[in-house]
Write a protein that binds this DNA or RNA. Sequence first.
DNA 1: GTGGTCTAGACCACG
DNA 2: GTGGTCTAGACCACC
Lengths: 128, 128, 128, 128
Amino acid sequence: MFLSVDASDERPLYKQVIDGVKELIARGVLREGMPLPSVRQVAGDLGVNLNTIAVAYRELQDEGFVNVRHGAGAVVAARSAQGAGEGELRKPLRTALTGFVLARFSDREIVALVRQELEWLRQKGGTL
Amino acid sequence: MFLSVDASDERPLYKQVIDGVKELIARGVLREGMPLPSVRQVAGDLGVNLNTIAVAYRELQDEGFVNVRHGAGAVVAARSAQGAGEGELRKPLRTALTGFVLARFSDREIVALVRQELEWLRQKGGTL
Amino acid sequence: MFLSVDASDERPLYKQVIDGVKELIARGVLREGMPLPSVRQVAGDLGVNLNTIAVAYRELQDEGFVNVRHGAGAVVAARSAQGAGEGELRKPLRTALTGFVLARFSDREIVALVRQELEWLRQKGGTL
Amino acid sequence: MFLSVDASDERPLYKQVIDGVKELIARGVLREGMPLPSVRQVAGDLGVNLNTIAVAYRELQDEGFVNVRHGAGAVVAARSAQGAGEGELRKPLRTALTGFVLARFSDREIVALVRQELEWLRQKGGTL
DNA sequence: GTGGTCTAGACCACG
DNA sequence: GTGGTCTAGACCACC
């Protein structure tokens, strides 16, 4: 699969999986209606506990990004069901930007990095 | 004081304090050499335990943002000692931007929000 | 376990634990990838509070000597991530040597003691 | 005076003063019977609180390195009264050496550094 | 099971 | 006054 986890990442494993799936959806690698790999397969590929992946999938469902159908696996939800409000999104953005400001990046550099990240997220289909 | 914590925030209290102090430094509200309020005062103002703030101050010291001396208080460290590398900063930025993309913000909208946040961070002196 | 704390030692308990773990790593008793005993077990063995050990483990993580993952335990980190610069190491060495000089040990005696300590540290595998 | 304190040093101020005086005695810059500068003068020179220096002098007296005579200031004590037993000296030595081992210094390098430090301590009269 | 966070409250060390 | 350390004990998050 195209997911990966990194032991040196500060985020817990299940969070890395959630963020990874979200990125894949944002990039269009995973499109509406497409099935996600089974919990069992992801756990095997990443070498982590089944439970960890199950928790991740469950939270993805709670947030409206996937629909888990009993026995039939998980599929990417309709786009209308996805996404959060601007309010909750601003806090992590501000925290991320604060880091760059403290590291003395200029506004131009920061905006350039933002555009670069957006370009990467936007390339429809991605590096499947 | 100018710090605040929010029980509904997913971040632990001590992390909220850390991020809050970093924002204040980034905005220039707290400048090099300025003393931070005492652990006791912050704890009292925010209504949290002394230890929680002490942990936050300790981590801020470990990250090089403040200098804490035992019987004296904590002061904002020299800027040269602060900041992180680009590597650790990109991951939270990407995660934050992914949220906006999933919420179907356009690139123009996102960049505008980024500029808005940067402008707020950059007004030296801030809303003291 | 092979750790111990001493109430008559001037160092705080958590520091004694940190230094003890570092010694075990230096001696090769704890090798890269090996799990450390759980916080609860160490706390029980040494008869100190859970939090005290948790603080020690956290600092060991911050210094790069161990990797602590939430629901999993703590494991000895890759050696490349460990170690400090010569600068920070000289000061405690000078202080230690000053003590011997003041106690009127000769240079030969001091160097012999140093070799003796190094020999003890170097016997890979140690007195497991 | 020949003492100095360093804000970036992790040791508390009073400990830096104590270690500094001990070094001066070890190096022979301060010899038996010689007067130490007054508490007031040291405090002024270093820009620290009077109390801090007074505490340092008192501990130096308790350890037998100086004799404080009321109203007459402090003088370096007779050498026979100074020094600690080998037992208490080994622990800091071991901790210091552990740091070098973890930073992957070879035994030869470490012994060379030890000899270098000893040479500096031994130059009688010092850089007065 | 693991470690993480937080509280309440005590006592010590430092300036 | 300041921050540092430690305890007891609770509850949560992660695997």
